[in-house]
Computed example of a mutant assay.
Amino acid sequence: MSTSANYAQLPSLNEDYALTNEQIASYQKNGHILLRNVATPDEINAYEPILSGVVREHDYNTKPVEERDTYGKAFIQIGNLWQLNEGAKRFVMACRFAKIAAELMGVSGVRIYHDQALFKEPGGGHTPWHQDQIYWPLDTPNTITLWMPLVPVSEEVGSMTFVDESQKLGYLSRQEISDESHKTLGSFIEGKQLPTTNYGALAAGDATFHAGWTLHSAPGNPTEAMREVMTIIYIEDGVRIAEPDSKARANDLRGWFPGLNPGDIAASPLNPLVYKA
């Protein structure tokens, strides 16, 4: 499947996924939620070969897993698949996913911040405790990540582990994903005895959504199968770029908001509007 005409035959992913008021309230309270069957088995069967193909094509890891640092062991990470492949673009721009993101946050419109394939190899390491939003030069709580496995994920690999209501704590630490962040934030979670949730085994097409400030980690992959996950990060339409207060945020400003400056509305050509109520 390589031509645009063939991609036009792909499922549209625009049909509605109805959320209940309880689901929205639960997300807003806890900062995370699991939604089952956000993409159907047929839709996953159509898109998985395309998305995993793009990852294989752009995976430049040459070192074996055991020789990499903690971050390198955690996953194969490829960003903005939507720019690399027409089929991947249809998946990332899906109106269904974007509408869920907007409704969970309680906003009228969302833009793409970026997408990322996060494939955890057999023997891949854990993902240390972190908050995504330490990387993002945005002064808003209205950011959300869809995390969708493209293959069934067994109980021993599981979903991510989230710290309930941690999004309400805001900016806890500038530490980037590392052994240090795992230790510091792990001690904080333990010391405060904060409750956590892990959703366990997931089917392909299930999805978790979590807020940008929600503390989370993920276990390693002790199985023989690749844990294929696609993520899409959404931001509220109309939010402005904040002055970067770290190197990580300065890098993100350059990479994901090209041509824009602090104070500008976060809407470069890399941040298309994907849903408006």
Rank of each mutant, 00 (worst) to 15 (best):
R96G: 10
G158E: 03
F209S: 03
A250F: 07
Q175K: 07
K89G: 06
G220V: 08
K120A: 01
H182R: 04
M226S: 11
P11R: 02
G106H: 03
N261W: 03
I144A: 01
Q167I: 15
L169K: 08
E236A: 14
G31C: 10
Y27D: 10
Q9I: 06
T62K: 13
T197I: 13
M105Y: 01
V38I: 08
Q193F: 04
K276N: 14
T196H: 03
L202S: 11
R249C: 12
A250V: 05
I33E: 12
T70L: 13
I177M: 09
S159Y: 00
N261K: 15
L260Y: 12
A225C: 10
V107D: 00
R254N: 14
P149R: 11
T196C: 15
P11M: 08
Q133Y: 13
P244A: 12
P152A: 05
Y71A: 08
P122R: 06
L253H: 02
S159K: 00
D264S: 15
S181D: 00
E165K: 15
Q167V: 14
E22K: 12
Q9N: 14
E22N: 10
L202I: 04
Y7Q: 06
V274W: 04
I232T: 04
A248T: 12
G200K: 11
I144E: 01
E224C: 06
L104F: 01
R249Y: 04
F188K: 01
L270H: 07
L215V: 07
A94K: 01
S178D: 09
Y71I: 06
K168W: 10
E57Y: 09
G220K: 01
G87S: 13
T3R: 08
E228N: 08
P49R: 04
A248C: 10
H182W: 07
I100H: 07
V163A: 06
G255T: 08
H182K: 06
M1E: 08
G109Y: 00
R96F: 12
S268M: 07
N21T: 12
H58W: 06
M93T: 11
P152I: 13
N198D: 15
T40C: 11
A98K: 03
L169F: 05
G259W: 11
V151S: 05
E155K: 13
I134Q: 07
T3E: 09
S166T: 05
E155P: 02
R68V: 00
A74T: 10
T143D: 01
W136N: 08
Q131Y: 02
I144G: 02
I144Q: 02
